[in-house]
Design a protein around this nucleic acid. Structure first.
Lengths: 192, 192
DNA sequence: CATTAAAAAATGAACGTTCATTCTTTTTTT
DNA sequence: AAAAAAAGAATGAACGTTCATTTTTTAATG
């Protein structure tokens, strides 16, 4: 049983409210007053936990990005076979995006708009290192195309966001078989 | 020589300013006064051309999306071979995104935030029909995996946006060889 | 355990600014 | 000279943030 301080609860409520409202209205169209209301807190209270609105967004971003990375590498061992490890990571990421829809949408918005400080964005980028290392090994072993990590990422992980978006809009359903099909596309895109 | 009316010029200047400022600051952080200033126009004048700020954004979106579609299907003939036609369209889209960076960034922001009306977004979606039809034929001819158009799009066209983003941030350079590598990943992802 | 006073946390109202939009007047075109 | 287009100033609402005050928590004392 983990002890969770009262102020940690409020902080979390504020971050959660921020994510929810920003997803629905965008960052600048989300007033602090509404964030406060959703978190059952006075507007002034926000400033006990965060320096200002920008800081609130940055911290939400970092928090979500880090929970994303935790999921991504669950049960992954660096000494796994390349394809096995890649499938594990890919499925972890897909599962995260499909289960934690709010978090995934928030990240997508942060990554495609100027709402987050460049510094915080850099911070969130570090986490992918193990995947890049895995790809490097895959190249050495002749299993993965000798492409830059950017291209490999663009054609394997990034497409998952699109599938999530279309599912969110109700345009398609991403069930287990669809996920397997998507994975096969991802692996075919980069395998030698 | 196409005759361009004076008011058309102002309208275009306003749309261009909108795209530029929204790319750099986001929609809600872009004041009408700045759009007016960049277009060399009084704030009040904007309202002669657009109903309000939202209308300005919607029209910018529709305009850019349609210019995108025009590029996408340049020199494409519906009776082309499937792989040939696909490569043509894919390269057209990639070229558009790399050349018309402002437009591409604007679309990316529109598609990943709630800044555009759902109605206008639907409007912009129609244009991809020829590509979907090509994929259908590819499936019939046993050349393309029998996947939904969403998955096919996610693993071929959508990744281009990521490469554009990383290039914009100066993290990588997308030159001709890189483009060929990316294309091969796209085709491998969906070919049977 | 009850009391209480100091400290910490939280609040609602208020402030100053910014913004989208409109109104009245001026300039340009016909 | 009438009509159309454009302008700048004005308006009212909304926002981020701060301030003065109240409420809650803490911990020391009898």
């Amino acid at each position: 049983m983990k002890a969770v301080s009262k102020s940690q609860i409020k902080r979390d409520a504020l971050l959660k409210a921020t994510i929810c409202l920003v997803n629905n209205n965008g960052f600048h169209a989300t007033p602090m007053s509404k964030i406060a209301k959703m978190a059952n807190v006075s507007p002034a209270t926000i400033y006990l936990y965060f320096k200002n609105k920008q800081d609130l967004a940055n911290q939400a971003y970092i928090e979500v990005k880090s929970s994303f990375s935790n999921c991504a590498f669950k049960d992954f061992e660096p000494n796994m076979g390349v394809e096995e490890g890649f499938k594990k990571i890919w499925m972890n990421i897909a599962t995260f995006k499909l289960k934690e829809v709010d978090h995934a949408m928030f990240l997508s918005q942060c990554d495609n708009t100027p709402m987050i400080d460049e510094e915080s964005r850099q911070e969130g980028l570090k986490h992918l290192q193990p995947l890049i290392a895995l790809w490097e090994r895959g190249k050495e072993e002749g299993l993965v195309k000798p492409f830059s990590p950017f291209i490999l990422y663009a054609f394997t992980v990034y497409p998952i966001s699109f599938l999530l978006n279309t599912e969110m809009k109700g345009w398609c359903k991403v069930d287990k078989p669809a996920l397997e099909r998507a994975y096969s596309a991802a692996w075919d895109a980069i395998k030698l």
